[in-house]
Amino acid sequence: MGVAQGRRAHLGELERAVMDYLWSLAPTNTNHPTAPTNSGAPPGEPAPTPPQRAATVREVHDALAQARDIAYTTVMTVLDRLAKKGAVEQIRDGRAYLYRPAVTLDALTAELMHDALGTVDAESRASALVRFVDTASADDAAALRAALAKLERREY
């Protein structure tokens, strides 16, 4: 169990490293004539494919191997997992596959922040997340500080 969890955490960390590398590859999507900006697109919809250079497994492995001891097959496994999750695209190139991000970093970040800041589930109330402070709260700052002052008096 512990080993399995450790392995999952390790894979998660590798997935992040792989995506970071793929996103770092020539993000030429600024000034691309056909690619609309993602700022106006509703999150959740697939963002337009970024015109981004695709990488071979070898390239990804070489990049990751600079910082850690990692096997070529492990990189293949990680890329395969990412493809299954829809995070990267597989492009056939002769006998090999090329990989590139399916979604831009900006689009993914926007989607994550949209969820995290609670603009989604205000309506249904059945929240996917349990927040420390509900975004619906609109307490007066002065009232909050007064309540805190009372708590401080009690604690000391």
Binding site: V133, T135, D140, L144
Partner: peptide
């Protein structure tokens, strides 16, 4: 203190009168 710090900065989004949960 954490409640005060994080509640101060919170933007009331789709404001719903949530009962009982308020930081106050």
């Amino acid at each position: 203190r954490a409640l005060v710090r994080l509640a101060d900065a919170t933007v009331p989004a789709g404001t719903l009168g949530s009962s009982g949960t308020s930081p106050l």
